[in-house]
């Protein structure tokens, strides 16, 4: 598998791993049967993502995209975070192998689900 250096860096040293116990929003996407699952926790202050953590069961691409998603989203307005696409995440990682592109959906979708849960409260 041909992963970029950035993917390998985020896989080997993932940023923002963990949970937020009293999170303002939590989103989980994927399922273990398919081999990948990501949960994103956010804390929101003044319409911005003030803290973000994630947990991932999945391959190197799934872990790296989740890590990069949290890094990009930290400090963003909710609108900007909702507009973040799979391609934004893949681009920030200098690309993903074609067969792994679906992994980049997972983290962005989990982030969006966490924001939507917060907005629905």
């Amino acid at each position: 598998m041909d992963y970029s250096e950035k993917v390998m860096d985020h896989f080997a040293n993932p940023r923002n791993i963990g949970e937020i116990s009293d999170a303002d929003g939590v989103g989980t996407v994927g399922n273990p049967t398919c081999g990948d699952m990501t949960t994103v926790y956010i804390r929101v202050t003044d319409g911005r993502i003030a803290d973000i953590k994630f947990k991932t069961f999945g391959c190197a691409a799934a872990i790296a995209t989740a890590s990069m998603t949290t890094e990009l989203a930290l400090g963003m307005t909710l609108d900007d975070a909702l507009a973040m696409s799979r391609n934004d995440v893949a681009d920030a990682l200098d690309g993903l192998p074609a067969v792994k592109m679906h992994c980049s959906n997972l983290a962005a979708d989990a982030l969006h689900a966490a924001i939507e849960e917060y907005l629905a409260k």
Partner: peptide, 26 residues
């Protein structure tokens, strides 16, 4: 249990250890 084989394989590879996995992701 609870971990995915490709990420386990890649971590072992970073330590110089070559294995294979039945995981779909690989």
């Amino acid at each position: 249990a609870f971990v995915e084989g490709e990420s386990l394989l890649m971590h072992l590879d970073m330590k110089g250890i070559a294995v294979s996995t039945g995981s779909a992701c690989s």
